[in-house]
Simulated assay, not measured.
Amino acid sequence: MRYEAIVFDKDGVLVDTEPYYDQRRRAFFAEIGIDDSAFPSFYGSNNEVIWKTAVPNDPVRRRALYQQFRLKFANAPVPYARLCVPGMREVLHACRGLGLRMGLASAGPRWVVDDFLSQLQLTDFFDVALSGEECPANKPAPDVYLEAMRRLGVSPAKTLVVEDSPLGIRAAHKAGATVCAVTPPSAPRLDQSLADVQLGELRALLDWLSRCL
């Protein structure tokens, strides 16, 4: 077997959440008077980058606003079931059936990863689930993928990573894994040129795996 493990990104790969996250942030920034009109795209980014952009020079206020943001939406969890990418469960079942060791490696916070797994009852699919915030550096650094491979007990040469964003693809590429890029419904024009394979929709992964395993 050419590959022994497969590691999935979360947002944009398994759930099409980036527009939902962006809408929440924009509503919060408008409410507290932060002008985000000149902010860069945060697609595939992480909390540290996002909140340092919003509050660059005051870490105390930055932490306080982030906690305020969390509190505001504490009783309105992300509706992951509604945002699942078509074929998500089918793909996870198939990968498990192929005997691949399975990992989840997200740039999002640990509590977000846990909420996602709990809501959709996906914990048993993954041998390893990691947040980039648990590593020395988050994506686009390769740390979260290197740690996932270490915990799975596989080499980069035997690992397939499924990503969508340019930042995530760069992280997986630096880690030395084979990178398959998928395109979420809400972001058809991502730069995925650094990926080894560009599949389009997530379901296409199954046909590709049938030919290369």
Rank of each mutant, 00 (worst) to 15 (best):
V49T: 13
W51F: 01
W51S: 01
W51Y: 02
T53N: 10
A54G: 03
A54T: 02
A54R: 03
V55P: 07
V55H: 08
V55E: 12
P56V: 01
D58H: 04
D58Y: 05
D58W: 06
P59R: 12
P59C: 10
V60T: 12
V60H: 12
V60F: 05
V60Q: 11
R61Q: 14
R61C: 09
R61L: 15
R62A: 04
R62I: 01
R63Q: 09
R63L: 06
A64D: 15
A64L: 10
L65A: 05
L65P: 08
Y66N: 12
Y66K: 15
Y66A: 08
Y66G: 07
Q67S: 08
Q68H: 08
Q68R: 10
F69C: 11
F69D: 14
F69E: 13
R70H: 13
R70Q: 12
R70C: 13
L71E: 15
L71I: 10
L71D: 12
F73Q: 13
F73Y: 15
F73H: 10
F73E: 14
A74P: 07
N75I: 09
N75W: 11
N75D: 12
N75H: 12
A76R: 15
A76S: 15
P77W: 02
P77K: 03
V78S: 07
P79F: 00
P79L: 01
Y80Q: 07
Y80H: 02
Y80D: 06
A81E: 09
A81Q: 06
A81S: 06
R82P: 00
L83E: 02
L83W: 00
G87V: 00
G87W: 00
G87E: 04
G87L: 00
G87P: 01
M88K: 06
R89P: 04
R89F: 06
V91A: 11
V91T: 14
V91S: 10
